[in-house]
Amino acid sequence: MSDDAKYATLLLVLFITACVAAIASLLVGPAAITFLDALAALFSEDSSAIASIVNEIRLPRTLLGILVGAILGLSGAVLQGYLRNPLAEPGVIGVSAAASLGAVFAIYTGLSALYPLALPLCALVSAGVAVVIIQVLAGRGASTLTIILAGVAVSSFAGAMTSLALNLSPNPFAALEIVFWLMGSLADRSMVHVQLSAPFIVLSMVVLLSLGRGLDALTLGEEVAGTLGINPRRLQVLAIFGTACGVGAATSVSGAIGFVGLVVPHVLRPLVGSKPSRLLAASALGGAVLVLAADVFVRAAFPEREFKLGVVTALIGAPFFLWLLMKHRRQIL
């Protein structure tokens, strides 16, 4: 089988898996609804209980799982290619935590109640600041250690500010919501959240997917990339804007879901070969599969509990992260 055919097959398999996960996501919930009823409800116009459960409670959750997972996987692949660092990922380098802080600012000051768009925009700006800080602190092609330290600094600062803001809120519920912003969840999100975040996420996916050629050229070094007609400055702006826009909008409705952007590109890299461009679409699909599966697991395993999505992704991601570090150390030694 040729390389291209193999790649096409992989994408097809990932796509089918994502569809299966999405269907599972529509079927799992506290109210028992059969597959056929759910399917019928999805295309019906009536306002029966089943229709409103499927269309207004489960469908937004499924759509957000796809969108949030796709953008996290994709931005992980882009950041790893662009910063040429295997540990670059929105969660690890603090972009998600910073986006959470922006969203917290918008919601708890009451700004988002007046202007709903303030929610994704504040998260986006805050995430953008974090990416720029990481780049200034660590630079491209920086050592793994530098980027981790910079990420720890940004993450802990943003996390601390989030906790502080919520602790100072006079609303007694706010302090409990620290967990949501630091761990993420898709519970009881509505179509309003989909409408708020989807345009930004889709826009950033288009931007990030278009960076494939530039990222491929960058693997040959910046000068060679220049001779191939790649403008490094433009690539930088688009990578930063795309990540901030997508991760910002996703985090503003789902909280910070960690490790997706780390695990997915690493699992898929051996399957797509060394070209960064091929990793992009595959990581977007893989991210959607991971987040959808984690969300189905959360609902099926602990239906009575408010179990956070970030807990599941961290349970998968943290050991993986350690394994990556060990492998990396061995390579250095």
């Binding site: 708890y108 609303n171 706010a174």
Partner: peptide, 9 residues
């Protein structure tokens, strides 16, 4: 609510 929170969303 004395201040906004996700709890009331």
């Amino acid at each position: 609510a004395s201040a906004p929170a996700l709890a009331h969303e």
